[in-house]
């Protein structure tokens, strides 16, 4: 199948392709992805996401990123257990030699747990007896981190060949792309910097968040570097659900236009 070229600068059909996870050559991965030019639905898989400006935010509850066997699913006994599987899946799709990114992700997961507990009263259903969910289920509404994200640049960046800007962790939040860059003190590499600068300047939805190493070595997640909606990820939703919820339920739950 011909491989269309998603272009976030396209005037009539802007799309952002993010290849994420263990990947040493995103061009190879790109060549193996089949993208239909006329697709209107956003796509999320275990190693890439294709997004439109109006695509819903990517959350742990989004379907497509987490692949789990029926047998494993049947053994899941609790929200905590399923989220633990999600956590392990995200960490494991991050290169084992990328300690700083893994540190960021661990810190993020700890932040989510503490955030849910901190806002328990707000998240608890009004009538516990009548509801099928508990406040802890809201954790699946948190923004899904896409570690080691390679974002496809428009063909005009260089020679009409696929080039990718590298982001340590990407989040897609209701029309906003957050690109986390962990600053470990590395001397910038010219070609890599040019691509990142281009992305930061040209992508209409992106905000780059630079996280200094010393922030990661603190006990708390550097939430002060992120927008407010990053912390209160549940506030545009009516109900929580997991990544394997029926589509009817998913369609029913969105409040905002963006979702």
């Amino acid at each position: 199948m011909a491989n269309d070229y998603p272009n976030f600068l396209s005037l009539d059909f802007p799309r952002t392709l993010i290849i994420y996870g263990q990947c040493s050559n995103p061009v190879t991965t790109f060549k193996n992805i089949s993208i239909l030019p006329s697709d209107n639905a956003f796509e999320l898989s275990s190693n890439y996401a294709e997004l439109y400006p109006s695509s819903p935010g990517l959350r742990f509850s989004s379907s497509g990123w987490l692949e789990i066997s029926t047998r494993q699913m049947l053994n899941v006994q609790s929200t905590e257990e399923l989220f633990q599987i999600s956590r392990e899946r995200v960490i494991n799709c991050t290169n084992q030699f990328s300690k700083l990114i893994r540190l960021f992700l661990e810190s993020y997961f700890d932040f989510l747990h503490s955030q849910i507990e901190k806002h328990k009263n707000e998240l608890e259903p009004e009538s516990v007896e009548d509801e099928v969910f508990i406040y802890k289920d809201w954790i699946f509404s948190a923004w899904l981190p896409l570690p080691q994200a390679h974002i496809l640049l428009p063909p005009k960046f260089m020679d009409n060949k696929p080039n990718f800007a590298e982001i340590d962790v990407a989040f897609w939040m209701e029309g906003k792309l957050i690109g986390v860059v962990v600053d470990g003190g590395e001397t910038p590499i010219k070609s890599r910097k040019e691509k990142l600068d281009y992305l930061a300047e040209k992508h209409p939805q992106i905000s780059i968040v630079k996280v200094p190493r010393d922030k990661l070595e603190e006990d708390t997640f550097p939430i002060d570097l992120f927008p407010n909606s990053f912390s209160y990820f549940w506030r545009t939703l009516t109900l929580p659900h997991g990544p394997f919820a029926p589509k009817e339920l998913i369609n029913k739950r969105w409040k905002s236009d963006g979702e």
Partner: peptide, 24 residues
Amino acid sequence: FFSEEIIIGAFFNAGIRVYNLKNP
């Protein structure tokens, strides 16, 4: 220069060589 991905070495008659260790 500080990098944990770009490794630069002197290799006698093979000159100065620069390696990307993104995938170690």
